[in-house]
Each structure stands twice: as C-alpha cells, then as structure tokens.
C-alpha cells in the first residue's frame, strides 16, 4: 500500500509542479486551466471538457479542466475573478454568474465577485428551458395551465434546482408574464427537482430539455412550451411562449470568461481559438450527444447578450425579493 500511496503523492506533486512552472513569453507556453465552478457531470463541466479538448488541439498547448465547486458556483467564479489576468485561468460559467452578485446585493452581503471583474470571451451554448407536467396532469396546454393557476392561485406547486437558481428564475418570469401565482418548492439540484415531478409530489417544473427529453419520450412527462425564441430541435412540435403571446425568453447558457485585465493579444488568441473550437467536428459531436445546441457568439455580441440576460435576471430577483417564511402562509 505504501508504494501505491507514494505513487499517488508523486502524481499530485507533478501536477502542482506543472501548474507552477513556465515563463511568460509567447502565449500560451504553459497549461491553461479552465475552471468549471460546478461538480463533474454538470452542464458547466460537460461543456468545458469538449471545449478544452478542442482548444488544446488548436492552441497546441495543454488545456485542463478543474472543478472548483461550492456555494452555488460562487467559489469557482470568485476564484477566476480574483486570479492573475494572464489568460492561463479561464472560467466556464452558466447563467448563474449574473444571479449570484444580484442575490448578494439583495441580502446586503459582501459580494463574492462582481461581474465587471470578468470579461466574456465567447458564448458556447444556450438551451431554452421547457415547461413540463406529469402525463397524468389535467393541463394539456399552456392555456389550460394558466387557466388552472388563475382558478387556484398559489396552489399549483413547482420544483426547482434551488432558490434563486436558474429554474426558479424561469418560472418567476412565467408567473410574472402570465399574471399567475405558483407555489415554489426548491430542491437541492435539477435532478431531485425532476424526480419530484416524476413522483407526482410537485405539479410542474421548468427544465433544460436534455434532462427531460427521455422522460417525455418514455411517456412520463408532457412538455407544454419552451422559453426559447425558436422551437427546439429535439421537440419540433413544442410551441414557444413567444408564439403563445408571452413575451419571455430564458436560456440556460454556458460561456467562457477571463479575468478583467487580461492583455488584449491574449484575449484575441483565446477568442480565435474558441471560434475554431465550435467548428471542430469532435466538439459538435460531443455537444450533439448531450442534446445541447451550440450557440456561438463572439465577445462583443456575447457581451450584449450577457447584459440583456443579466438585466432580466436582476429584475426577476428584485421582484422575488427576500423570501420571508411568513409570506408563504
């Protein structure tokens, strides 16, 4: 056993040594780290890995994904926001990057990071959420659903990945646009939230399509509508809320960021590599397997997209405000 332990130790040691070594001349000349602020197997991680693999080929330089998890992603995001702006530490963030600083503001907390500590490099993917109910539900369409919710305000329950989480935001936007009141039951992640609806414990939820398509095809869940501007490829018969007259749009997106202050030539090199990344066949194949549509935007357009998205989320958070226990009675 001792020998095994020693070898484990030495592997660790080599890992540290590699990440420390290297001088600075031409970028990149040492391994680049992409931080996924969520655990392996999550959207950020699953997107970061094929991106890193493609970038590695394009930059001819190792690109490593590390998971720095905690506090709903805040730990990893503030780690990158506060790291040296040299292009060797990048962030694969999701929509929640705009939520955390807003929530910190709401609770008068010292913010873990601010959004202007980071500059966007490229948007990689954007997946609209979809509204699903169990197949046994009386709601066959959004019309039924909204009518039912108006009949019994505050009684239809929805599960979410967590309070102020992306799935909570999507439902809050719908409630606001449709003028209905729903009962929010937060869970510890999207997986348990879907399970709760499958088990019939909660009435509905907004979910990323990839996680529920199998349940829809298996006849357990029924989709009602999607939050996208366009219909999604996997469910071409599913209308969008926009088509139905609700002016809402919401995506679970994944994008790459660098710390602010990264030199312009380095940023350009990274942006170029990402532009090539999304055209790689291996990358396209990996994303297709995940049922996640690629939605590439270069930095300037991504900045615009991000600003709009962040504003929308900030408004939603302000509307929700602080959740007081008394309010639920």
């Amino acid at each position: 056993m001792k020998r095994i332990l020693i070898s484990v130790l030495s592997i660790c040691a080599i890992g540290f040594a590699v990440s420390q070594a290297g001088a600075q001349e031409t970028f990149p000349n040492r391994p680049i780290t992409v931080v996924a602020p969520f655990p392996p197997g999550g959207v950020a991680d699953l997107t970061a890995r094929p991106v890193a693999a493609a970038m590695e080929k394009i930059l001819k330089n190792p690109v490593i994904v590390t998971n720095k998890t905690g506090a709903g992603g805040a730990v990893g995001m503030s780690f990158v926001a506060n790291s040296k702006p040299d292009g060797y530490t990048l962030l694969m963030a999701l929509s929640s990057i705009s939520i955390i600083p807003e929530a910190d503001k709401l609770f008068d907390r010292k913010p873990a990071y601010t959004m202007d500590q980071l500059v966007p490099l490229a948007l990689i993917s954007a997946d609209p959420t979809i509204l699903v109910v169990p197949t046994g539900s009386p709601s066959k369409s959004v019309k039924d659903f909204v009518a039912d919710a108006k009949k019994r305000p505050g009684e239809i329950s929805y599960s979410s990945s967590g309070v102020y989480g992306t799935l909570h935001m999507a439902m809050e936007m719908l409630s606001h646009a449709a003028g209905i009141k729903l009962k929010h039951i937060p869970y510890g992640g999207a997986g348990p939230a879907i399970t709760a609806v499958l088990g019939g414990h909660q009435d509905t939820l907004a979910s990323g399509p990839a996680a529920v398509v199998a349940h829809i095809k298996g006849g357990k869940l029924r989709p009602l509508a999607g939050w996208g501007a366009k219909r999604i490829a996997a469910l071409p018969d599913l209308p969008t809320f926009k088509e139905l007259g609700y002016d809402i749009e919401f995506y679970i997106w994944a994008g790459m960021f660098a710390p602010r202050g990264t030199p312009e030539p380095v940023l350009k090199r990274l942006r170029d590599s990402l532009r090539q990344t999304v055209q790689e066949a291996a990358f396209k194949d990996a994303m297709a397997k995940l049922d996640t549509p690629i939605a590439y935007l270069d930095a300037p357009e991504f900045q615009k997209f991000w600003d709009k998205d962040a504003k929308m989320l900030a408004d939603a958070i302000k509307r929700i405000g602080k959740i007081e226990e008394k309010e639920q009675k």
Binding site: P39, P40, D45, P192, T195, L198, A214, G218, L290
Partner: peptide, 30 residues
C-alpha cells in the same frame, strides 16, 4: 431508480447518469 427510471438516487448515481449522457444515451424509463 437510476437504471429503471433514469432518476438519480444520490450524488454518485447522478454523476454516473451524466456519464451515460456524454455517450449520447438519455437515461430514462426506456
């Protein structure tokens, strides 16, 4: 629950479900 329904019963099966998804298999009742 993971194999029969595609539902994670804890953090570890959740990671394994993700592994299936990466291979283009949608974990679910089928």
């Amino acid at each position: 629950p993971m194999l029969a329904l595609g539902v994670p019963s804890g953090p570890i099966p959740a990671v394994m479900l993700a592994a299936l998804m990466v291979h283009g298999m949608s974990p679910g009742p089928l």
